[in-house]
Computed example of a mutant assay.
Amino acid sequence: MFLLYADESGTPGGADQEHFVLAGFSVFERSAHWLSLELDKIAAIFNPQDSHAVELHGAPMLAGRGFWRKFDKELRLEAIKQALSLIDGRKFRIFASVVRKGAISPNDPVHYTFQQIVTRFDHFLARQHVHFNNTQRGLILFDKSSKEAPIQALAKAFKLDGHDWGRLRNMAEVPAFIDSEATRLIQLADLIAYALFRYYEKKDGQFFDLIERKFDYFGGVQHGLHTVV
Rank of each mutant, 00 (worst) to 15 (best):
F132L: 09
R100E: 15
Y5E: 10
R213L: 08
V221F: 14
F197K: 00
Y5F: 15
G138V: 08
L39E: 06
Y200V: 12
Y112K: 04
K81F: 06
P48I: 03
R90W: 08
F92E: 10
S85L: 07
R213I: 01
L39K: 11
T227N: 06
H111G: 00
A176N: 08
L168G: 00
A149D: 08
M1P: 09
K214G: 05
F67A: 10
T119C: 00
R120C: 06
L84G: 12
K81I: 06
Y217L: 03
S105D: 13
I80K: 01
A153H: 05
F158W: 14
A195P: 05
A172S: 14
A103E: 14
H52Q: 15
M171Y: 10
L35A: 01
L75C: 05
F218M: 05
D72S: 01
I87W: 02
R137A: 05
L62R: 13
S26M: 08
H33I: 11
V98Y: 13
F215I: 00
A15M: 10
H57I: 05
I192E: 09
L168F: 11
Q206G: 01
G224E: 04
A157H: 12
L125C: 06
L141N: 09
I104S: 07
A195Q: 01
D16E: 13
D7F: 00
E78I: 03
R184C: 07
D164R: 04
L125I: 00
Q49Y: 11
Q115S: 12
